[in-house]
Design a binder for these strands. Structure first.
Lengths: 148, 148
DNA sequence: TTGTTATTGATAATCATTTTCATTTATAAT
DNA sequence: ATTATAAATGAAAATGATTATCAATAACAA
């Protein structure tokens, strides 16, 4: 419910209806931990909106991604993961992934330097390959504390 | 056949047998384009080694990845892609991916700056989270020439 | 209140990848 | 060279994530 009105408004702007499953999925995404898989989200849904199908979860996530509200990424295991994307650069982060147990850690270190390099690379690449670059990912792979 | 002896030797060192499917898969990987999916590799195999099963392709790729000869990555469509990893830093590269048509472009620009930043970040992250970092990926997502 | 149309949920279908298991084959030992 | 053995293979079935189908439902503009 908190912030619900803003979402509702952003949905309306895009000619999308504001429904219970969508509200609840957004709520789960905003309050629960990051990096949730479709199935995890589906499982978290039962309390607030029982009967919601896994199909709807996938469809909603696809919509949210298309509207730019959610970022989808792959952490190496066979399933996609989803996280709400914040507004400003304070939310900009990347992932540190344990290739053995799948643990994911967000990091925001060196964002300034990163953005500088990324911007430079992005400009050069965009020009060189005539690409319109919309996003980027940086991830580190390795073994976590417990798995090393 | 060219370079086959080196591979054979590297396999032996790891107590792995040197078989026809493995030789042919390595050959395909080394001569064909990068970013091949399992099915593409499988399709390229017929001429040199008909009868090779898709299962064997997957198993071989898994082995090659485990031995560190091949890098597996995900380009956003539902399938994994594989590429031979070269030795030195001259082979170090990353990907520019078109999210609409799936086109993948390698880039090596700004590798020096990148490695510097990456090294710094890596050290800090490794210490901070007690992670043993083994690899990293940087990818840019956007629309290619034809799709924009 | 009503009509239109997007959205939903159950089910089935798809697609990549993995497992199973009997058969074959590389290779070390004889 | 022959043989024994464990690794590797291939066919087929199983799995698991994601997508398509379609009739029923619900949001919301009029």
């Amino acid at each position: 419910m908190p912030g619900g009105h803003q979402w509702r408004h952003r949905f309306r702007e895009n000619a999308c209806r504001w429904t219970m499953p969508r509200e609840v999925i957004l709520d789960v995404l905003s309050r629960a931990s990051r990096h949730m898989s479709a199935k995890e989200i589906y499982a978290s849904l039962y309390a607030a909106c029982p009967g919601t199908g896994l199909t709807t979860v996938y469809r909603t996530l696809e919509l949210l991604q298309r509207l730019g509200f959610v970022r989808k990424f792959d952490a190496g295991d066979g399933q996609s993961r989803y996280e709400l994307r914040g507004e400003g650069t304070q939310d900009h982060h990347h992932h540190l992934i344990c290739t053995r147990c799948g643990k994911i850690i967000d990091f925001r270190d060196f964002i300034e330097e990163e953005l500088e390099l990324v911007k430079k690379t992005e400009d050069a690449l965009a020009k060189k390959h005539n690409f319109q670059i919309l996003d980027h990912n940086i991830e580190f792979l390795g073994l976590c504390d417990k798995c090393r």
